[in-house]
Computed example of a mutant assay.
Amino acid sequence: MELTNREWKEFSIVEIFDSIQRGKRLKKNDHIGGNIPYTSSTALNNGIDAFIGNDKNVRIFKNCLTLANSGSVGSTFFQPFNVVASDHVTMLDNANFNKYIYLFLATMVTRLNEKYSFNREINDTRIKKEKILLPINSDRKPDYVFMENFMKQKENEFLEKYKKYVTGKESEIKQDFLTDNIEWKEFLFPDIFEIKNGFYNKKPTSSGNGKIPFLGATANKNGVTEYYTLSEIEDNSKIGFGKNEPLSKKLFKGNCIVVTNNGSVGYAYYQVSEFTCSHDVNPLYLKNENLNPYIAKFLITTIEQQRVCFEYARKWRPMRMKKSKILLPVNSENKPDFQYMENYIKTLENEKLKRYLDYKKLNISEYK
Rank of each mutant, 00 (worst) to 15 (best):
Q153N: 10
I173C: 02
E157I: 01
N209P: 04
Y228W: 09
N209T: 11
R140N: 15
K163G: 00
D124L: 14
G210L: 11
R140V: 03
F146Y: 08
G223L: 14
Q153C: 01
F193S: 05
N137C: 01
Y200L: 06
D124G: 10
K129P: 00
F241C: 00
P142M: 01
P204D: 08
R126A: 13
P246S: 09
N181V: 06
K196S: 13
I136E: 05
E121N: 13
K253V: 06
I195Q: 11
E130A: 07
F146V: 03
T218G: 04
E226R: 09
K249S: 09
E170P: 00
N236S: 15
V166P: 00
K128I: 02
N156Q: 05
P190N: 09
P142K: 00
K141S: 10
K221F: 12
G210S: 03
G223R: 14
I182Y: 04
K196H: 10
K128F: 06
K211W: 04
N197V: 01
D139C: 10
P135E: 01
K250I: 05
K131G: 07
D139K: 12
N181K: 15
F150C: 07
F146T: 03
E121R: 14
L159Q: 04
E245Q: 13
V166G: 01
K221M: 10
F146L: 00
K161V: 03
N149Y: 05
G168W: 02
K253I: 02
K152T: 04
P213W: 06
W184N: 11
I233V: 15
K211M: 03
I173T: 11
P142I: 06
I132K: 04
G210V: 02
L133R: 08
S206F: 08
Y165V: 06
G240D: 09
T205D: 10
K164N: 15
F199K: 04
D191P: 02
I212S: 05
N220E: 15
P246Y: 12
Y228G: 01
T179P: 03
Y200H: 09
I239R: 15
E157F: 05
R120S: 13
Y227D: 07
N197Y: 14
K250V: 07
P204S: 11
K253Q: 10
Y228N: 04
D143A: 07
S206W: 04
I132P: 03
I195N: 08
S117N: 12
K238H: 09
K161D: 12
A217P: 01
F187I: 13
N197T: 09
T125R: 13
L230S: 06
W184S: 12
Y116M: 07
C256A: 13
K154G: 00
K211E: 13
K185V: 08
F199Y: 13
E170N: 13
P190S: 10
V224C: 09
I122Y: 03
N181C: 11
V166H: 00
G208C: 07
K128D: 08
N181I: 01
T225G: 09
F118T: 11
Y165G: 13
R126T: 07
T125K: 14
F146D: 03
Y116L: 10
E186D: 15
N181M: 07
I132E: 10
P213I: 05
G210I: 05
R120Y: 02
E186R: 03
P142G: 08
S248C: 00
Y162P: 02
F241V: 14
S138A: 14
E194W: 05
N119V: 12
G254V: 06
K141A: 06
N123D: 15
C256I: 03
V166A: 15
Q153E: 07
V224F: 03
N123C: 11
T179K: 08
Y116P: 14
